[in-house]
Amino acid sequence: MGDLTLSAKQYVRYSRQIMLTDWGEAGQLRLSQSKVLIVGCGGLGNGAASYLAGAGVGHLVLVDDDEVALSNLPRQLAFDEDSLENAKAFALANRLREQNPQIKVEPHVQRFGADNSASLLRGCDLVIDCSDNFATRYLLNARCVESNIALLSGSVIGWQGQLLLVDPQQPEAGCYQCLFSAADDKSGSCASMGVSGPVVGMVSSLQANQALRYLLALPSALGQSLCLVDGASLNQQLLTRRRRSDCPACQPSTRGTSHATN
């Protein structure tokens, strides 16, 4: 990274963020060398990916096996009526390439699963969970812990959002499964419970902001806490987390046991 410099055009493009004192040119170069996996290209994935692409994160990997549906359009702002029935990962990738041709976008029309997790995680600096089901959330959490890759998990329903960072550097704060040991899809999805589009936007914006701060190695309270976002009352609550001593996903013996990062 030491020999890299920004082109004049890049310098202008990213000038408003480079001028932040704790961002700078070094931070921008760091982002250009970063690889982020985004699991789920729905509402959260649309928002988070658009901000990361705009900010110049160098390599975005998008994973989703679903197609764009009419009921997605109120909150999935990278899609329009021409996108209907197209694969979300491809449609989002096309939009991001138009938004920022300088970055690499790698779409996969697949569901994140046990069979493809190692290849999808390889070389990633950060994973953002924008998925819509608990099975994927638990699997992604376990694989990230095993691979020593940070996981930024966001979720939304109704007027509510939740956000946490599972940071390999802060194992004492535990993981997603320490917090919710046995949730299943009876707990509700956007399809069954409904969701406010702008709340999806709020949570995806917070995800993108925290993702950029993580990639820039800037401090974040989210590594030790869970953020609850309430779009009805406008309350935002930070709750501190601790590792659950009997959590099967993040026992000290499971941390870093996978070689997906190599």
Partner: peptide
């Protein structure tokens, strides 16, 4: 006391 459910929507 804060009591809240897990949510999965994305």
């Amino acid at each position: 006391i804060s009591v809240f459910g897990a949510i999965a929507g994305g």
